[in-house]
Simulated scan of single mutants.
Amino acid sequence: MPVPTRDAPVVHLARPHRPVLVAGTLAELTGPTRGLVELPLRLWWGPRGTFDLCQPTMLAWMYENVLREAIRVTELQTYLDGPTLVRVWPQLNLPRAVRAAWEARHPRLRHAR
């Protein structure tokens, strides 16, 4: 994890050269909470891009991918739901940097674990 300096804030990387994108508030995440959701190829390039949010494992899988791959706040807002994110947060398999960045911005997620 990067160490903050006096002049530079901590930057968490989802992968080399890609900073983690974090929503400003959980309330702005107003994505679907049930039904079928098709992710664009940019967020999911697997064989099936449709996720059934009624299935807990598929919902978690979609959230993990969006949290790792999003590069625009609108992607987070479109596909994630704030209360659902808090509920499933402990079960998500995320890179350490992604988890750290989101928990630093939203302490409520840290307490959900």
Rank of each mutant, 00 (worst) to 15 (best):
P4Q: 15
T25K: 01
Q55G: 10
G35I: 00
Q77Y: 03
G24H: 13
P47H: 07
A27R: 11
P90S: 06
T30Q: 15
G82A: 02
A100H: 04
L41Y: 10
A100R: 05
W45D: 14
V11M: 13
R15L: 14
T50H: 05
A104G: 04
L94P: 05
G82L: 09
A97I: 06
W89C: 02
T33I: 08
P16K: 07
R105V: 02
M58F: 09
P32E: 09
V66G: 12
R87I: 00
Q55V: 15
L59G: 02
R42Y: 07
H17Q: 12
G31E: 14
E69Y: 10
E38S: 09
P16V: 05
A70N: 09
F51Y: 10
W44D: 08
R15C: 04
R6T: 04
E103I: 06
L109K: 14
W45C: 13
A97L: 05
E103T: 13
A97M: 09
V22I: 06
V88H: 01
A23T: 09
L36H: 09
T84E: 02
I71R: 03
E103L: 07
T50E: 13
W61L: 08
G31T: 11
L43D: 06
P2M: 10
R72F: 12
A70E: 11
L67C: 05
H111S: 10
L26C: 06
Q91T: 11
G46L: 07
E69T: 08
R108W: 05
A101P: 07
Q77P: 04
R34W: 02
D81Y: 00
V86N: 01
L21T: 03
L67S: 05
